[in-house]
């Protein structure tokens, strides 16, 4: 909760929202949407994701609508193999397949391709439900060993048609692969190396906040990354608008 609040704001409640007494400003003007008619038992959301980094393409965005019985990952706990598969290689198929088979998940969707730095992806996701509790999103920073950015368990139950929530997301380390930055270990265009590998050789088999990349320009001479691949939080801006 603290992590989510640090850079997050419910835009509909901007003046009232507070996380430890801090209101976080929106990252910039958001796309507007025309509300549509509201037939019963359907919830449809438009989700806009903006890549705020300089040099980290994001793997195809995965979106999940769910209740509190399902959770993508927990900080300080080992990542599932599905989360590991996404975090190490950008492949969200196992995460979404498993979610689709979970009783706590009501809808999933994936972007069709990666999201370049500075670019915005617009996705829609809908559920034949008269209420949807929670929203989660995950994607890999592909020029890393196993960095992800995620929005987790964002409450969307009270969104009315036309209302939106704006959040920004932090970077996490899946804890499943050592951050060697070595040639052959990074799947993104900086390297073209390996994606998923079942071995778990990070400093701890736990999802933690990411410490950033070191890169060859900062003295890690064997790194295939350069200063251009560094980032600071937040990594992405996500706007969830209920359109039906």
């Amino acid at each position: 909760m603290t992590n989510r609040c640090w850079f997050a704001i419910p835009a509909v409640l901007l003046a009232l929202a507070g996380c430890d007494g801090v209101n976080n400003p929106p990252i910039g003007p958001a796309p507007m949407n025309d509300p549509e008619p509201d037939p019963p038992a359907t919830r449809e959301f438009q989700v806009s994701v903006l890549n705020l980094t300089a040099g980290q393409p994001l793997s195809p965005i995965a979106l999940i609508l769910h209740d509190s019985s399902w959770e993508m990952f927990q900080l300080g706990a080992p990542a599932s193999v599905a989360v590991e598969t996404l975090a190490e290689g950008g492949d969200n198929s196992m995460l979404l397949d498993e979610a689709d088979g979970d009783a706590g998940v009501v809808a999933t969707t994936s972007a069709g391709g990666p999201l370049p730095p500075g670019a915005t992806e617009l996705l829609t996701i809908s559920a034949e439900e008269d209420s949807v509790d929670l929203f989660s999103m995950m994607t890999m920073l592909v020029n890393t060993n196993d960095a992800i950015t995620a929005a987790r368990n964002i409450s969307i139950a009270s969104l009315d048609v036309g209302e939106r929530i704006e959040i920004t997301t932090l970077s996490y380390d899946a804890g499943t692969e050592a951050n060697s930055e070595l040639a052959g270990t990074i799947p993104g265009p900086a390297d073209g190396g390996e994606g998923f590998n079942a071995a778990r050789d990070d400093i701890a088999d736990e999802v933690r906040g990411h410490s950033g990349v070191v890169t060859s320009d900062d003295g890690h001479s064997d790194s295939v990354l350069t200063q251009a691949h560094r980032w600071d939080n937040p990594v992405a801006r996500v706007i969830i608008t209920r359109i039906d």
């Binding site: 705020l52 980094t53 300089a54 040099g55 730095p117 500075g118 251009a228 560094r230 980032w231 600071d232």
Partner: peptide, 10 residues
């Protein structure tokens, strides 16, 4: 030159 406004990488 990156060509677009973004969060500074430090």
């Amino acid at each position: 030159v990156e060509g677009f406004v973004h969060v500074h990488r430090n």
